[in-house]
C-alpha cells in the first residue's frame, strides 16, 4: 500500500501555510506519528523557504510530491529558480559559538540533513530537483 500527495505552491512565504495544512491532512489520513509529521513539515518548509529566498523566481510554481510506502517516505521538490544546490552552496551551520558570535546561516539545511536519511540534488534542464528519503520507524 502506498499513498501519494502532490502540492503545487507559489514561491512566496505565505504559501508555507498551504504546505503545512496539506501535510497535516495527509499525515492524518496516512497515519503518521506526530514526530514524522513534525519533521517532514520542518524539512520541507526549510527547503521551500530557500527557494523563495534564493531562487529568484517569486510567485513561480514549486512542485512538491510525497510518496508514502510502508518502509519509507520519499519527497521530491522541483522548482524553476536559478540553479541552486543547497547541499553545496549553504554555509556550514554554526551550532557551537557563544550568543554574541552565533550566526544563523545554514541551520535549515543542517536540520534537513539531521532529520532525513537521504538527501540528494540534481539539476534537470530548467529545474532544481531535491529528493529526500525518510525511513519509517513503524
Amino acid at each position: 500500500m502506498s499513498a501519494e500527495l502532490s502540492l503545487q505552491l507559489s514561491a512566496t512565504l505565505d504559501d508555507i501555510v498551504k504546505l503545512h495544512d496539506g501535510l497535516e491532512a495527509f499525515a492524518k489520513q496516512d497515519g503518521w506519528t506526530s514526530k514524522l509529521e513534525f519533521e517532514v513539515k520542518l524539512v520541507v518548509e526549510e527547503l521551500f523557504t530557500n527557494v523563495v529566498n534564493y531562487g529568484e523566481c517569486p510567485g513561480e510554481t514549486v512542485q512538491i510530491d510525497f510518496k508514502s510506502e510502508p518502509d519509507r517516505l520519499t519527497i521530491e521538490l522541483a522548482d524553476g529558480g536559478k540553479p541552486f544546490d543547497p547541499l553545496v552552496e549553504t554555509p556550514e551551520a554554526d551550532t557551537s559559538s557563544a550568543i554574541e558570535d552565533r550566526s544563523i546561516g545554514g541551520l535549515g539545511v543542517h536540520l534537513v540533513l539531521t532529520m532525513m536519511d537521504e538527501v540528494s540534488y540534481r539539476r534537470d534542464g530548467p529545474l532544481n530537483r531535491l529528493t529526500l528519503v525518510k525511513r519509517r520507524e513503524e
Binding site: 503545512h20 513534525f38 513539515k41 520542518l42 518548509e45 526549510e46 523557504t49 550568543i99 554574541e100 552565533r102 544563523i104 541551520l107 535549515g108 536540520l111
Partner: peptide, 19 residues
Amino acid sequence: VYISSAGLRAILLTAKSLQ
C-alpha cells in the same frame, strides 16, 4: 507546537539584543 529555523533566527536576534 511547531518552530522552524525562521523562528530560531528571531529567538537568536532577541537573545543577542538582550545580551
